[in-house]
Amino acid sequence: MWRFIAGRLLQAIPVILAVITVTFFLVRVAPGGPFDSEKAVIPEVKAALEAQYRLDLPLGQQYLAYLADLAKGELGPSFKYPGRSVNELIAAGLPATAELGAYALLVAVVLGGLAGVIASLKPNSAQDYIPMSVAMIGICMPTFLLGPLLVLLFGIHLEWLPVAGWGDMPGDKILPSLTLGAAYAAYTARLSRAGMLEVMSQDYIRTARAKGLPEWQVVTRHALRGGLIPVVAFLGPAFAGLLAGSFVVETIFQIPGLGRFYVQAAFNRDYTMILGTTVFLSTLIVLFNLLSDVLAAWLNPRLRAQFGEA
């Protein structure tokens, strides 16, 4: 088990290094720079700024210097927020984004899993078609449409929930979490339905019924675990999507999270900020993929035994 995890972590290093390299050179290839602006800047000032942020060095040296800083855990100073480091900015934005992501994931797993399981119990009936159609809509509807619609309905029309904000008013976390989690809930619903249908046709489900167990016990005790393994394996990629997708939701609901910094940094050519967030997010994504793989394997006794031997 530990060897497997260590191996996967080692594999992650070249992946993250490749991400850094590509991002590093891509942002510099993009037209414009951090200190370009509409008004003419005195050349001496610009030169001084570039020297301060090491932009005057040859590209190769900039790259190496960045890697050296990264090895020490420093993501460098932000170009646009003078006096603040990228580390500080990420630390400031992370809590809101992490919380939003966690709630959205919860929405995805609980709502989606429940819908999928319910649908699977009576395939090709209304109990199947209704949640699955809703799920299809969920997959098709982009968050920038779903968010405002939810706001219109629950925030403005019904006045049940606040229209924006994060942690300022009771209940203001519900709509953003729903908006962000909806598409993933839909995927989860489809995955868990397929997984459950597969498991429910297995011979050991017949064995469980032959024991005289009531149907709900057959489902919860015998079917759920096998049926939900595909969902667990999907959690890693889902988390990646949630992080990437949180920008839109953070914008709609005015949430001071990481996503907004990220996109603003891209507009501003804030090289260190773009790189810093990319490195941070890709590391998280790698970790979460690993976590969901380990969890999915651990749920399967046969794979668990193989891990034990390895």
Partner: peptide, 14 residues
């Protein structure tokens, strides 16, 4: 009570 044909698939692997 019942027993079935294929003991490989009739027990819950989990």
């Amino acid at each position: 009570a019942m027993i079935f044909q294929d003991p490989m698939t009739c027990l819950n692997p989990y």
